[in-house]
């Protein structure tokens, strides 16, 4: 973990989880696992946050909330989907009100399986996420474009995108 030179702050949002993963996210911050000793702090303000922890799958009513929080976060940022529900819907996948995993709405950088995800796994994912955050920070410093292409644009012009890829290669 020597690459952590800054104190990453996290923000947590409960998509439509059962609380199991949420209390495990909180448990990571508590004396037993205590990630706060690395300077990782849970903040309530998306504009202060570097890492977005999402638990639970996305539904019709909260998809805009998730999107809004993501858009408010400053670049570079990392999204971690915690628990099987956040990965792909899990046991609730077949429910009428579930759209699916978090990646149906926003890009996800790290996935944590498990029902409920164990604190060790969550910490591992956040650490992995910090590695990605560092890469993104480097990329940003080098002036490379970070924003993923708009999904509509990608769908509208797949050939163009492919050609561009060839040119770069």
């Amino acid at each position: 973990m020597s690459y952590i030179t800054k104190s990453p702050w996290v923000i947590h949002y409960d998509g439509s989880s059962c609380n199991g993963c949420d209390i495990e996210v909180l448990a990571c911050l508590m004396p037993m696992y205590d990630v706060e000793r690395f300077g990782i702090i849970n903040t309530g303000n998306p504009k202060h946050a570097d890492v977005f922890l999402v638990t639970g799958s996305v539904n019709e009513q909260n998809k805009n909330v998730v999107k809004q929080i993501y858009e408010q976060m400053p670049e570079p940022k990392v999204v971690v989907a915690i628990g099987i529900c956040a990965c792909n819907g899990g046991i609730f996948k077949e429910c009428y009100n579930i759209l699916g995993g978090v990646d149906t709405v926003i890009p996800v950088d790290a996935y944590v399986p498990g029902c409920a995800a164990r604190p060790e796994a969550i910490i591992d994912a956040v650490v992995t996420g910090l590695g990605i955050l560092e890469q993104k920070r480097q990329a940003l410093a080098n002036g490379e474009l970070l924003k993923e292409p708009e999904p509509e644009a990608a769908v509208a012009a797949p050939e163009e995108a492919a050609e561009e890829g060839k040119e770069e290669a």
Partner: peptide, 9 residues
Amino acid sequence: FFVTAEPTP
């Protein structure tokens, strides 16, 4: 009260 993907699921 509940916003659902389809009405009266």
